[in-house]
C-alpha cells in the first residue's frame, strides 16, 4: 500500500519536520518501500502470542526517594541557543 504525499505531510507535522517538495516526493517512495518490507511480519502467525516489551525480564526497578543534587547550573545551561535570567528563551507563546 503506497504512502500518499498527504500522509507524508501529516506525519511530518507530527514529527515536527518541514519537508521540501522534493523530500515529500522521496519520502513517500522510501516509506512505501520500507513499509512494504516491514509488512513481511504479517506473514508470521502470532495468534495468542504476547508482546515483547522489554528486552529482558526485569521488573520493579525503583529508586529511593532521596534528594541527590550535584548540579552545575552553568553546565546545564551552557548549550542553550538562547537564554535569559537562567531560563531558556523562546519566541512568545500564548497558553
Amino acid at each position: 500500500m503506497a504512502i500518499s504525499k498527504e500522509e507524508v505531510i501529516h506525519i511530518a507535522k507530527l514529527a515536527s519536520l518541514n519537508l521540501t517538495e522534493e523530500e515529500i516526493e522521496r519520502y513517500s517512495n522510501d516509506m512505501t518501500e520500507i513499509l512494504e518490507f516491514a509488512n513481511e511480519i504479517n506473514s508470521v502467525n502470532t495468534d495468542n502470542v504476547g508482546e515483547t516489551i522489554a528486552a529482558n525480564e526485569k521488573y520493579n526497578v525503583f529508586r529511593k526517594d532521596e534528594i541527590k543534587q550535584n548540579v552545575d547550573k552553568e553546565a546545564l545551561l551552557q548549550n542553550a541557543p538562547s537564554k535569559d535570567d537562567g531560563m531558556f528563551r523562546i519566541p512568545k507563546v500564548i497558553n
Binding site: R63, D65, K68, Q69, V71, K73, L76, L77, G86, M87
Partner: peptide, 24 residues
C-alpha cells in the same frame, strides 16, 4: 508530596531559582 521527582533525584520543593531543581 514526595521529596524527589518521579524519575530523578531532584527536589520537588515549590519555587526556587529557575532551573535550579534540575539535573541532566
Amino acid at each position: 508530596s514526595t521529596k524527589t521527582k518521579i524519575f530523578c533525584s531532584c527536589p520537588t520543593e515549590f519555587g526556587g531559582e529557575p532551573n535550579t531543581h534540575c539535573c541532566p
